[in-house]
């Protein structure tokens, strides 16, 4: 029965002091929040940390949610700002890592992929791989549009951009995605021959 409750009902329950109602909000949004964080950070551990921080920030600021937009849009804007702060901090922390370490990681990553049998790769995996090769913002826009089912206006609101800018960026992101998929497929064919 509780699954049928809307975000607004659950938020008012939380604001009345029922913290457990927030567990339901987490359950309803955790997969998308995690996916979005993963698109930004490209690392599962970081994505979990970002998703947790985002939910905690949303909980603290729940009373400021004005309800003039969808809760999901408001939550995704928190995920975006949390990720940007996280990545900025992480970039500063990892500046000292030398190129040798990075090279080892890259080699490990590519060899891991060539080992995988091509026959077991589904089309979805190609698309996922292509999305992971896009820039952070391109991957986020595609994820918000397709998986988050957000309109261009809502994406603009979540990312703090103009909706026309989002429209142009979405188009370019899809063009790049198409190119990436073509590139991956060509590489797979070359590996097979």
């Amino acid at each position: 029965m509780r699954d049928d409750k809307s975000d607004i009902d659950l938020i008012s329950q939380v604001l009345q002091g029922d913290k457990m109602a927030y567990a339901q909000i987490i359950k309803q949004h955790q997969r998308f929040v995690f996916t979005l964080a993963l698109r930004f950070s490209k690392c599962r551990e970081d994505a979990e940390e970002i998703a947790q921080d985002s939910f905690i920030k949303a909980f603290r600021a729940l009373h400021t949610f004005k309800q003039n937009s969808k809760f999901s849009t408001w939550l995704y804007s928190i995920v975006y700002t949390t990720t940007m702060t996280f990545l900025r901090k992480k970039r500063l922390d990892t500046q000292s890592i030398d190129d040798e370490t990075s090279l080892i990681q890259l080699e490990a990553y590519s060899s891991d992929h060539t080992i995988i049998d091509v026959e077991h790769k589904s089309k979805m995996q190609f698309v996922n791989l292509a999305i992971s090769q896009l820039s952070t913002i391109d991957a986020a826009i595609i994820t918000l549009f397709y998986q988050g089912e957000q309109s261009l206006e809502e994406i603009a609101q979540a990312l703090g951009m103009e909706s026309n800018t989002v429209k142009v960026k979405l188009h370019r992101a899809r063009q790049r995605l198409r190119e990436k998929i073509e590139g991956i497929l060509k590489q797979e064919v070359r590996d097979l021959l």
């Binding site: 939380v14 604001l15 002091g17 913290k19 457990m20 927030y22 567990a23 987490i26 359950k27 955790q30 997969r31 998308f32 995690f34 996916t35 993963l38 994505a47 979990e48 998703a51 947790q52 939910f55 905690i56 909980f59 603290r60 600021a61 729940l62 009373h63 089309k123 979805m124 698309v127 996922n128 999305i131 595609i142 397709y146 998986q147 995605l177």
Partner: peptide
Amino acid sequence: QISALDLDEPSMSFGRNLMEKIQLEHSPVP
């Protein structure tokens, strides 16, 4: 294909760990 992509799943303990942290927070009051 993009429309049919599945969402990623966080670890099993994600929700439980998060709720433990939430329990330590003050209730958000209007």
